[in-house]
Design a protein around this nucleic acid. Sequence first.
RNA 1: GGACGCGUAGCUCAGUUGGUUAGAGCACUACCUUGACAUGGUAGGGGUCACAGGUUCGAGUCCUGUCGCGUCCACCA
Length: 881
Amino acid sequence: MEELPKAYDPQGIEDRLYKEWEAKGHFHAKPDPKKKPYSIVIPPPNITGILHMGHALNDTLQDILIRFKRMQGFEAEWMPGTDHAGIATQNVVERKLAKEGKKRQDLGREKFIEEVWKWREEYGSTIIRQLKKLGCSCDWERTRFTMDEGLSDAVLDVFIKLYEKGLIYRGNYIINWCPRCQTALSDEESQHRDVDGMLYHIKYPIKAAKDSFVIVATTRPETMLGDVAIAVNPKDKRYKDLKGKAVMLPLVGRELKIIFDPIVDLKFGTGALKVTPAHDPVDFELGRKHNLEQINVMNDDASINSLGGDYEGLDRFEAREAILEDLKARGLFIKSEPHRHAVGHCYRCHTMVEPRLSPQWFVKMKPLAKPAIDAVKKGKIKFYPERWTKVYLDWMTNIRDWCISRQIWWGHRIPVYYCKGCKDGEGIIVSKAKPEKCPKCGSADIAQDPDVLDTWFSSWLWPFSTFGWPKETPELKYFYPTNALVTAQEIIFFWVARMIMAGIEFRGAIPFKDVYIHGTVRDITGTKMSKSLGNVIDPLDMIAKYGTDALRFSIISITAQGQDVFLSEGKFELGRNFANKLWNASRFILMNLKEDEVKADLCVFFKGAKLSLPDKWILSRFYSTLSYVTECLDEYKFNEAANSIYEFIWHEFCDWYIEIAKVTISEKSSQVILYKVLEKSLRMLHPIMPFVTDEIWRKLPREKTGADSIMIESWPHVQKEMISKDAESKMKELIEIIVAIRNIRSVWNIDPQTSVEAIMNVHEGGIEKLLRENEGFIKRTARVSSLKIGKISKPAGAAASVVGRVEIYIPLEGLIDLAKERTRLKKEEDRINHEIRSISARLKDKNFTLKAPKEVVEKQAARKDELVSQLEKLKSNLEQI
RNA sequence: GGACGCGUAGCUCAGUUGGUUAGAGCACUACCUUGACAUGGUAGGGGUCACAGGUUCGAGUCCUGUCGCGUCCACCA
């Protein structure tokens, strides 16, 4: 057979195989009534994205599922695509323009959008190429983009549907405003971070009362320019006298009402709250309740506007300083105290968010949330790990309306037109296309709403818009609902929850059955990997250095279900070494395989073959492993699947079976089993390590009429009748004996080349038979020249060891240090004594013998017998020294 | 303020529904370049399973509390 290179070198192999898979259409799936569908939609990466370890984990997991299901015979569709990422992409293109000294306003809206599309043409598919490097078997022919015609159409359709249903409205509310991106954000896009701020105590003079003040505490003194009232709790005795009075706003001179409202916390600050309805959500509510004026004192960039009087033009933080100075000058400033509190930050540029009154479009969420809550409560959608169910339900039951309009240019433009001929607020036309004239007044003076929709307003349709919705395509009918959604916890609210609502509302069915939430990839210190922190490990570097399979295997093997992953570069050696081990085992087998022997009908062979214990054992271990791995993959226990394959291939197949088979390798049964176990192991490992498995598989002798790649081969069938607990326990016993002999050799520094004589003192037929039948490989693997089995007493000057039913003697006349041997055996005796004591105590305890299951008690008793007999043997050995 | 996760070998982590002697990888020690593999082999050392109670015949595993670390959510200005 063909000889393989000495070490596995992924360079060259990976790209070659990937191109071939793709060219042959192995990734493509289409509706096939004869097969069951299995589908996953990718969490679409941003077009600005570059592959990071989070993707490496996320997309490897999905690829494992898809490859596994494809092999199991499902029509497996992995729908890929990218997200236009409104704010993020606009920022990137604006930065590019800035380098040329231009602003987007210089270009104008149309030209700017053209620039973004150009940028997208050039860089937007970087991430797709990188996913290919990862080995992802996505159905690239179907690749979608959230700004594609069809998907954009779906977005407009959904907007109109919700508007007509009364679930979309426009209103002037406090929203999260990013002064840098100059747009509104949803609550989810405003990320709370603890900030060390100050709480400033300021005197507000009471009107017409000399030298009396109300002291308020605020963290944002600059907003006082928009104050319209002071609120106190009606129960607050300190402020009883304020009834019927008014307060003068310092620096501005406006008269402020005093209002009484239980929302004010008596314990916080001074118990008096300055009310700024245009700049704070609580104040906004107070303002509505008490009919207060709303004074917005800021521009879009958070500088003070003309309503801010002398402070106009100052940035919010400059204004804060200036106002504090002026207050000090007038003796109205009392003190500032350090105050740590959570403040919202823009999730795109991390600028401090300014809560601010602004007219925006909103989606009413409560009606959408209700069926989405039920779907999860009834178990139609399951979260893995299960604990995320609670997180989802808590959020959903407290859901608030979704601000969906953004004051940027890149995105789906809101399909709303305003007629200037109609009275303010009445000439709203919601329509996909621009109307010629206003249906109400006939005016042609119509302008579209300048805003675009939140990026997530297209993402939430992803599981069905990608399959062609609102058109009733065959793909949509066949592949929807999808089977699994694999994503990170950060995105549960942004995306997962909203997809569930959208799926039920627009498609009338849940979008996926399982949601697998994996952990966050962190660096070795536990910090989230991010480019700005400079602690990233670039997956592409790791692929170049260790290979894709190594990257995939390593990250999977160290990621327990739903736990965060702590990565360091050294961890990729695990996967690289494993790929190399597999490569070399295959290399050995291929060097020795006689093609004719293994091309014969294997089923016929197994019917007639008399298998040796190691043969039965390795087959049993393989099918046990296969059965467990299948179960693990179905339950999203990827690490357990990976680790049990590793354990099987390395420590059972390579360490034992191949070593044992070296003697019998030219025999038919060894040939067949080596081939069969290797070939099936490759299939079992393929979803996790797609490249090395296919490369080796192609070199195996096989019927050329079959599949041309392991990726479209079938998942091995678990042959239960091959699983033999008897073979497994017998083999375990022999392995223990071999290890004991090796141990003696090692302890007495016997040269690895030197063969020794070994004596097995046995008093029972079963074990004697077992030893005799397997004498060959025992001698070989333990380097024993002659093996005597029977009732044989210990020769003088022999080292001894007791394993289960066997006493092992290795005659080492003259080589043994008797004192050292005594200590060694004594240590062993102590260990056994200790265990006997503990088991005896248990067996004497009636509570145990009566209450524990019979099996457990029997097992303990048997264990005790074994230990006692071992102890006797040890003692007699000790006496003979 | 609420919710969740984690604390197991020097390091990074597994540990199924409670049941013999708690595992792996890396690191460490000794020996080995043996015809698959030094990205390797053989043997070995190393753990009061954070702490304190409780349930149980039996707890790393279940319950309560404490301490430490981390994450998410939240309108104390």
